[in-house]
Amino acid sequence: MLILGIESSCDETGVALYDTDHARLLAHALHSQILMHQDYGGVVPELASRDHIRRTIPLLHKVMSDSGHSLDQLDAIAYTQGPGLAGALLVGAAFAEGLAASLEIPVIPIHHLEGHLLSPLLSRRPPSFPFVALLVSGGHSQLMRVSDVGQYELLGETLDDAAGEAFDKTAKLLGLPYPGGAALSELAQHGQPDAIKLPRPMLHSGDFDFSFSGLKTAVLTKVREIGTPSEQQRADIARGFQDAIIEVLVKKAMRAVKESGLKQLVVAGGVGANRELRRQLDARAVRAKIDVFYPELEFCTDNGAMIALAGALRFQAGVSIKPAGAFAVRPRWPLSELTSASNA
């Protein structure tokens, strides 16, 4: 069966085609709006929605051409129902529902974070169920126990700023361009270890929750103390900030795996592409004798491939499938609401 996936939750338009019979991704295409939003220092929802409208059809044509298949061969269409920007979600949802209705095939509304959660299954070395997942994507930082598709137990989550938000906001404090997370990580490579000491929020809280707003405030205080930081001081602050976040993420994730009794940790989402986070997790995993799995770098950011995969897995499980027709997007949608019996 061929499952088309469409992602339009924020500032990337993604389309992909997944083949369930051979369990492989046939083709995918992605357009990023980063350059369009850079002048504004962040995503402008109206501009994002309009750009999704312009990009979806050309990306669809490319994916179908690259895969060697035609639209009338599709068996279902998966699309991101939420969470995300309401207008952006509506573009992908309306397009998917309309196309599915014209082809008389079902649709599969997908939770954006479930797509990220399952994205490591697209890798050359995929994990198997069950596993513990560290999900660090945009405004979300969560630890989950994943027993199967749709069977997710929330172990802990951010109480305020997520790791990705803290990266972007701290980057802005340091005068780095949008999107700031990657730029901050690059700058941190030139910083001196322990030159800037910053707090490790909730490191010893005894639970699996996170809180990074105070860390961001500590950076702001440090910048004000210095005045106008030199390039080396900016690098040292970036290094101190990154070290603080990574220490919290690594220690809580490893403790979650230990207490779960499982031997697999999955790391997904944009922050999962951070090289230092991966290095430290890999080192700790060797000592703890567990396996760590990551999505390929191209699937760490928002993409259609993860939506096509999630749709394919739900299609095979017979859940969250519905006829094309009336639909609604869910800009706010806790991942913990999903179950294997859910029918969005």
Rank of each mutant, 00 (worst) to 15 (best):
H190W: 11
M202Q: 13
V223K: 10
S119W: 07
M202V: 02
K172R: 15
G181I: 00
H204E: 14
G206R: 07
D209M: 08
P130Q: 06
T217M: 10
Q151I: 02
E157N: 12
E186C: 01
L159K: 08
V136E: 11
L154H: 12
H204L: 12
Q232T: 09
L155A: 01
L134P: 13
S213F: 04
H140M: 05
L117C: 11
S260V: 02
V223Y: 02
P201W: 00
S260E: 08
G214N: 13
D236M: 06
F241V: 06
Q192F: 04
F208G: 02
H140C: 03
K197N: 12
D148Q: 11
F129W: 14
A163Y: 07
G214W: 12
V219I: 12
G181Q: 02
P201L: 08
G156H: 04
P126G: 02
V219A: 07
Y152E: 07
R224T: 07
A162V: 03
E157D: 09
L134R: 10
A162G: 09
P130G: 08
V132H: 02
V250I: 05
D236K: 09
R125K: 14
Y152M: 11
P127E: 13
P193F: 00
K252P: 11
I237E: 04
E259A: 06
D168F: 05
R145D: 13
S123N: 15
S260H: 07
A162Q: 04
F131L: 13
A166Q: 05
E247D: 15
S213P: 11
L143I: 15
T158P: 02
E225T: 09
L198E: 12
Q233R: 08
A256K: 03
M254P: 09
